[in-house]
Amino acid sequence: MRFIRFFLKRLVHSLFVIWGVVTVVFFLRFLTPGDPTTALVSPDAGQDVRDALREELRLDEPIYIQYFEYLTDLMVGDFGNSMDVLDRPVTEWIFSAYLIRSVELALAATFVAVVIAIPLGVISARRRHQPADYSATLFSLFGISTPNFWLGIMLIIIVAVPVGFIPTGNPGPLFYQALGDAVTQGNFGGLWDWLRHIFLPAITLGTYFTALITRLTRSGMLEEIGKPYVKACHAKGLPETLTLYKHVLRNTLIPIITILGLQLGTLIGGAIVTEVVFEWNGLGQLLIDRISSRDWTMIQGIIIVIGVSFVVINTIVDILYAYLDPQVIDQ
């Protein structure tokens, strides 16, 4: 019951934030100086072409009408048409391989980060002030201080160029397709191809997170180990690993989950840059492209999709947090 109340409250809040995101994004465009059609039509196009475009984009109506229409359109999943390629709806652009590729990359990076960082953080905390700890600390210092576009480039120079079989441009097959091939036809070439392609981008994108989680796990574990309940666990005679994982590590990771939710923005931002470096045709690269051509409906659509996913994930994280840390609901 208490949980449901918490859940509903959190949901209402998220809906409000999503509305805020949409509103901010909508009005952003009206801050741009000049006629939005200027960038879209060739300089020698006549006034009639422009007017037709203005009409099409409903630019001549009062702003609140435009806003209202935009909102109502959004509710039914209509983001408008791309200004650049007018006959193609924004949703068709976004909800396609672009989005899937971005999600794949983000998940792969998160996977890399979690798999490496948590054991590293635990080792670092348990071997405090030993060489393993110093190496992990140094690694995480570099990890959070290295711009990932440069890291990607370094990986290309150091790994891809000498090795040869790791591609550095354009993405490979989509994971689900590759997996389908493997399952239905026993053809693992696709999966290998996918792995080959995503390997460097995932490391590039995952490094910052790996470093961050390592750091947080280490300091969190050290703080947690000093708490009296750990001594109580020892006094009960619990196996050391049980105390370490079930009690200490679990309590360390709970607050880290929220921090990671907030830091998801870093992952998305990093994904944009990583996509550019590896010519990974994802949402980030699409955004950069569209910004260059001032395709505002597309820009708005992409940012809204990113913002909304961010909100949704953070809502899930908060609810998960409440589930894991029973004190949250009562606060």
Partner: peptide, 20 residues
């Protein structure tokens, strides 16, 4: 208001604002 700001990944918002 701050929560709405937080919903934008900084780089994405920055790119959009620079675009503006």
């Amino acid at each position: 208001g701050a929560d709405v700001m937080l919903a934008f990944p900084s780089l994405v918002l920055a790119i959009a604002l620079v675009g503006v």
